Computed example of a mutant assay.
Amino acid sequence: MKRERLDSSSLASVGYDPAAHVLEVEFRNGGVYQYLDVPDGEYEEFITAPSKGRYLNTEIKPNHPSRKLSPPRRPR
């Protein structure tokens, strides 16, 4: 899934598949997660939210199943 870079302290990039209703989020620590069953309207609210990290934590994470695609990068 193609992701776009974000100006966020905790999120690096985000992508959305409207056909599958899947939101894909890359965190600044390198972890990538997909959130399932995210309707188009909720994605629009997320992408326009003043704080995408806060919206993700309060609206997306508690209400949508997720799957981890990659582990976070380890500091060297």
Rank of each mutant, 00 (worst) to 15 (best):
V38N: 02
Y43L: 02
A49I: 07
P65Y: 14
E45G: 00
S70V: 11
S70P: 02
E26T: 15
V14R: 00
K52D: 06
M1C: 04
L23S: 04
P71R: 14
T58D: 08
K61I: 15
S9Q: 15
K2A: 14
E26P: 05
S9V: 15
V22L: 07
R28M: 11
K68V: 14
V22Q: 01
A49M: 04
M1N: 04
V32A: 04
L6D: 05
K68L: 15
I47Y: 04
L6A: 07
Q34A: 07
S10E: 08
Y16M: 01
K52C: 07
N29L: 06
K68R: 15
L36R: 08
P65N: 14
E42M: 11
P71I: 08
G41D: 07
S51P: 03
G41A: 09
Y35H: 07
R28E: 12
F46A: 04
F46N: 04
R3V: 09
L69G: 06
H64E: 05
S10M: 05
L6T: 15
D37T: 10
G15I: 06
M1V: 11
Y33R: 07
S66I: 00
Q34E: 13
G30F: 02
R67S: 06
G53P: 12
T48R: 05
P65G: 12
V25M: 01
F46R: 03
G15R: 00
H64Y: 11
R76L: 12
A20Y: 10
V14W: 04
L56T: 09
N63S: 08
S10F: 09
V38M: 00
A49E: 03
T48M: 03
Y43I: 03
P18F: 00
V22C: 01
P18W: 00
R67T: 13
Y35K: 02
L56M: 06
T58Q: 10
I47P: 03
T48E: 03
E42D: 10
D37H: 09
I47K: 01
T48C: 05
N57P: 01
G41E: 09
K61W: 09
Y33F: 15
N57T: 13
R54K: 12
G30C: 05
G31A: 15
S8I: 04
S13A: 10
E4K: 11
R73Y: 11
V22A: 00
P75E: 13
R67N: 06
Y55L: 02
P18K: 01
S70A: 11
K68F: 11
Y55W: 05
E4L: 12
R74K: 14
H21R: 09
Q34R: 13
Y33A: 05
H64C: 06
D40G: 11
